[in-house]
Amino acid sequence: MSGAAIEVRDLGYRVGRGAFEIRDLSLTVPTGAIYGFLGPNGSGKTTTIRLILGLAKQASGRIVVLGHEQPSEGPRVMARTGYVPERPHLYPSLTVGEQMDFHASFHARWDAARAAELVSQFGLIRGQRIGSLSKGETGKLMMLLALAQTPDLLVLDEPTDGLDPVVRRDVLMAVLEYVSQREATVFISSHLVHELERVCDWVGVMDRGRLVAELPMHTFKSGIKRLRVSEPPALLGDTPFVLLARETGDGSAESWLVRGWQPPMRQYFDGVGANLREVIDLDLEEGFVELLRSARQPRA
């Protein structure tokens, strides 16, 4: 396998003898990338993350993280990985300071100065019990712990879920600041597409246990368009773009969802005798929704 931060091949997972929750999953997170892992609720994002970190055992496939096989080299991976799970996993009866000390004792690369700086930046109080922290404060603390251990890889599972916009901004800013200083890789999962749009340079889309798309963010953002086509041909032949969906509209017009659109591709419609009436830009969220819809339906 190459020098990617995370490399997953043909991953399969199921609980007991039930149906497979994850099937034939393959993804690659380039080193230094901020990889957005998108998908609706229940698509298998958290399960995939747990498998990548060795918190669960895969039924099939291979996982290599930072050059180490999972799950056999789990401790080596976790020594270089900062993890913020979906749900808080800290000890409620400890104070912020005690939790930080506990975490520090397990991580040789703990940066006390950075930790102190983040305490101040996030407005946390060392003597406050974790059980009495608000959701936002807990989220910040988990991020603090992950960043202060100076990881090479940050795995963030919906880190801003349920947080107010101010806290979300603080958390994401801290991540970006860290990445800019250390060239770390970030693997961040979310169903808040608009949030990832601003920070990620790679995106993988998950749906129903499968990866339906993996591509650079700019390609994802710019490449998905909705085309209004009148007098569409019955048979398409080879198209220069990827046709994701084809829907009938008013009268003889159709609405096409395409990926990889470039302006010179207008000539294709002249060639088939159709009329391209309009090219509509979709934002990331619309593109994400359309992508999922097309993945769930058979091709036209």
Binding site: L55, P75, R76, M78, P88, H89
Partner: peptide, 18 residues
């Protein structure tokens, strides 16, 4: 008790052999 409340996620994510 504390680890069980968190479903052992924190313990399993520490960089020590289990």
């Amino acid at each position: 008790a504390a680890d069980q409340r968190g479903h052992h996620v924190y313990a399993l994510s520490l960089p020590v052999p289990r």
